[in-house]
Design a binder for these strands. Structure first.
Length: 271
DNA sequence: TGCCAGGCTTCAC
DNA sequence: GTGAAGCATGGC
């Protein structure tokens, strides 16, 4: 087990921030399935326990949770005249931008379109349960996110059974391109933001919004500022459409997450 | 029960 | 180039 005191870190906020869909509360613990592994965690205030070896923590999870980035700087960045953003940042001060697997991020955001977050979770879990490699831990069995090769072999009916709806051909196209080598996701790491986005846009079903989510959450391009229905609503309602992400150059994606999480919970709280 | 969801493609014009 | 229609399905 690895114990760390981590400021500006909140597993509940990360789980509800809409960037990842396989981080769940399990009684007093948290369970994450990522990079083909199952990780359990506990958090009390700033103290976080990772139930893994020191080696796994250093090699995978420390980077995954972006623990070497100073989020204090981001949290202190809102312009003095922007009380809405200051409130949003304070509200979601434990959010981190995870370093997720590009393939998993691509598929989850392909199928995120016109689905709410609960529905995305269900569809992702269905894909994993049906097509993911089993991970055995004691008496329990979990499932890794399915590989491109596996999904490329699936029939439209197979994919359809995971509630993908009209997104079936999108996922199928992405899987085939990656499986046959026409699209080499790891090599896209070497591209600048514009070239990366351009490469992602060649996939059927990937538009500007999905491409920027994949860039932000799968390639850790903190500069990317995805605009979805929530963000557009916030920018229209609270900024009269005049919000400029360039004001937060280098970390606009973090700011976007604060705004998204705040706006979404604002609505949930008012139900 | 009906509305809406971390949008995109297609097709008029 | 721009705008609107159409899309499958689950969750609330």
């Amino acid at each position: 087990m690895v114990t760390r005191r981590i400021p500006h870190f909140d597993l509940a906020q990360i789980a509800e921030s809409g960037q990842c869909f396989r981080l769940n509360r399990e009684g007093p613990n948290w369970r994450l399935i990522a990079h083909g592994k199952v990780l359990q965690m506990r958090q009390h205030g700033e103290t976080v326990q990772f139930l893994c070896t020191q080696k796994a923590f250093e090699e995978i999870w420390r980077g995954y949770f972006d623990l070497d980035t100073d989020y204090g700087t981001f949290l202190a960045s809102p312009a003095p005249d922007d009380s809405y953003l200051a409130g949003a940042a304070a509200y979601g001060s434990g959010i981190r931008i995870l370093r997720q697997d590009p393939w998993e991020t691509l598929v989850t955001f392909l199928l995120s379109q016109r689905k709410n977050i609960s529905a995305i979770r269900s569809a992702v879990e269905a894909l994993c349960t049906r097509f993911g490699k089993p991970i055995h831990r004691g008496k329990e069995t979990f499932y890794a996110f399915p590989t491109a090769k596996t999904l490329a072999r699936c029939s439209p009916e197979d994919l359809s059974a995971c509630s993908l709806g009209y997104r079936v051909p999108y996922v199928a196209d992405a899987a085939k391109k990656v499986a046959c080598g026409a699209l080499d996701l790891p090599s896209l790491n070497g591209l600048d933001n514009d070239a990366l986005q351009e490469a992602l846009l060649r996939i059927h079903g990937v538009g500007i919004k999905v491409a920027s989510c994949v860039a932000l959450f799968g390639y850790h391009r903190l500069d990317c500022f995805p605009r979805d229905v929530w963000i557009n609503r916030v920018l229209e309602t609270h900024y009269g459409g005049r919000f400029d992400p360039l004001r937060y150059k280098g970390f606009a994606g973090v700011i976007q997450q604060y705004l998204f999480y705040y706006a979404r919970n604002e609505k949930i709280d008012h139900r």
